[in-house]
Design a protein around this nucleic acid. Structure first.
Ligand SMILES: [Zn+2]
Ligand SMILES: [Zn+2]
Ligand SMILES: [Zn+2]
Ligand SMILES: [Zn+2]
Lengths: 121, 121
DNA sequence: GCACATATGAAAACGGTTGTCATTTTCACT
DNA sequence: AGTGAAAATGACAACCGTTTTCATATGTGC
């Protein structure tokens, strides 16, 4: 498994919010940074692996990435413009724990994402 | 804009839950129903337009469709043996609604899956 | 310098989706 | 029935994001 190219990460930082692999690539090109699209994809894959970034899908299916704090949270995403709100999942965490113990499961993790249309769209 | 082929809708019904365009196509082929993949895509597009179906993205980006208003539930899955429990999501449905309205979002759907280790494993 | 592992990126392959367009079907009006 | 306009259909190609391949470049310890 390859390591992440640090310039990809810093470009994603600079982009702020979500950016797709190709957007990051274009940004770097525009800055005269020489890099291959393949390396951008590989770096994002690796950052994803290390849980440094988060991935979501735009409406058309394109993957978009962004920096992700290490604390556990969920997302509320606008399907139309991509606006994202981080959700503290207090209630859902409890719910997951309850359901798990009711059914005799242990070491239970979960995924949960909300998606809809924001007030601007 | 073309109208939806009714056999596509009834196949989606029969599939139960989510199904991708290609899965629907394959299902119809297996049944000896003669239809083109293009028509399946077009019909789903039209059903989407008329808000008869809902669309989501699988992790790999493939679009999956389901009937709107189909009975909605979640899963608790054992990572080791695959045992699956269907969860009625009463609490989480409320949580989703609240979060959505707090943030001014509308038409909010959600995904939520629990995964852990069952009592036999 | 030399051997070996890793990183890189151009190009090809891949897979889901959409566009094109010639053909077929539907349907209203003779 | 016969006619023609409009809609539907599906084989095929184009598109586009992503992954794989592979040859080359770079680094690292000896
Ligand atoms: Zn929006
Ligand atoms: Zn959570
Ligand atoms: Zn189990
Ligand atoms: Zn639910």
């Amino acid at each position: 498994m390859s390591r992440s190219n640090p310039r990809v990460l810093s470009t994603l930082e600079r982009a702020g919010g979500f950016a797709s692999a190709q957007e990051i690539y274009a940004l770097m090109q525009r800055d005269g940074q020489q890099i291959g699209l393949t390396t951008v994809y590989r770096s994002l894959q690796s950052l994803l692996n290390d849980k440094i970034v988060d991935v979501l899908r735009r409406e058309d299916g394109e993957a978009i990435y962004r920096l992700c704090g290490e604390s556990h949270h969920h997302h509320l995403v606008c399907k139309s413009c991509g606006k994202t709100v981080e959700i503290e999942g207090g209630a859902i965490e409890k719910w997951a724990k309850n359901i798990a113990s009711e059914n005799g499961f242990r070491d239970v993790g979960h995924t949960a994402e909300l998606f809809g249309t924001c007030s601007n769209c």
